[in-house]
Design a protein around this nucleic acid. Structure first.
Lengths: 203, 203
DNA sequence: GCCAAAATTAACCATTTGGTTAAACTATAA
DNA sequence: TTATAGTTTAACCAAATGGTTAATTTTGGC
């Protein structure tokens, strides 16, 4: 894909997003970005001083959004269970909007932990952390006691993985002669199953 | 980690697995692999002609193994629930051994679906598909009735995602001042929670 | 002990890669 | 028109990297 008739900066950002998404921070080549943008490599460094700066510019905000969903929405007037239901709804809304971003971020963080450690630290939120909300509810005997860390991981697993692994399921089910698409219907089914899981843990 | 007193080929494979797992195919450096293996870089090329060959050697069969996890072990003498427990054990064993494999496969499949469609088809197994096993058990009224697709996705989500998102959790928990100590201990906790989920669905 | 084959190494090599430089081109305001 | 600031390019550069070569050491059968 060659890009023309656009402001250079936009061309670069689009090309960079394409290449970074495909190959990651390490695998991406500045030359390929320049080629796709249809410009000279030096121009990349003119607009964005270096590779990492360009990377940051491309994914500015994406990381933040991704990690913000790990915070619980703070309507403390509602029971914890209802707040978690809202949390799940938000999670699915986010993931339906950015299914590619999720896997990209996960891969980048996995492969390049030291770099991302700092970027994650920079993300600040005034929302309470899910762990704390759960622990608090347990202390007040509002809910049954269980390991909040494990629960949080379970919950996010149930929400996120279906999107990340979507293509695998699609291929696998099809090649086994089953009917299954990433239709909104199926997503709703999965969402319900997550809420069922919450209800089970809270019973 | 320096490796000594082992057959060179084994040393190389162990070191390569460590480095590939940490940095991926692109990010891995042959020099680092050589250093960890405690040998000369040229020796890598003596045993494995080039980087990709070495990568293939390290992850030879891993893909096959991964997809075989999706088949239920065919010991039909056991109850379905026990077979699922074995399935979960196998899944965790595999993922602990190749934590980077899951995300690697996910990314590859997402990126290049047609290529993987064939690879998945090539992986032939005479093992029954999890969906079928569940449907069969439901038909025989051995277990409560539920959507086997959603259950399968739930199950694999609970198993795979903690490994895929492991680095994120590690960093996030640490940066929030939480204790998330010994990794294997926590993995066992999560594994138990998956089995608890199975028990819940089968009750 | 001798010798050939296998294993191992140090020193290189060619290419790639992120990044720089200085010159050239372009728009635009005075 | 021309001075100026902003934009774009070709040509480089140094470092890193995957890979090679030729020589040296080790091994094992005779």
């Amino acid at each position: 894909m060659k890009l023309k008739d656009e402001k250079t900066e936009v061309k670069i950002l689009k090309a960079a997003k394409e290449v970074f998404t495909k190959h990651g921070l390490y695998g991406a080549r500045m030359q390929e970005i320049a080629d796709i943008a249809g410009i000279n490599k030096a121009l990349l460094h003119y607009y964005f001083r270096n590779k990492e700066k360009l990377f940051d510019a491309v994914f500015e905000g994406a990381l933040k959004k991704y990690f913000e969903q790990m915070m619980v929405i703070g309507d403390t007037s509602l029971p914890v269970k209802d707040r978690l239901f809202v949390f799940v709804d938000n999670m699915f809304t986010f993931l339906e909007e950015y299914p590619m971003m999720a896997i990209f971020i996960l891969k980048e963080v996995t492969l390049n932990q030291d770099v991302f450690k700092q970027k994650i630290k920079q993300i600040k939120s005034n929302q309470p952390f899910l762990i704390d909300v759960l622990q608090d509810a347990m202390d007040k005997k509002e809910i049954k006691s269980f390991d909040p860390f494990v629960f949080m991981i379970n919950l996010q697993s149930l929400c996120a993985y279906p999107f990340i692994a979507g293509p695998i399921y699609k291929n696998m089910f099809i090649s086994h002669g089953y009917e299954w698409g990433n239709t909104h219907d199926n997503i709703e089914k999965i969402k319900d199953s997550v809420k069922e899981f919450i209800t089970f843990k809270f019973q």
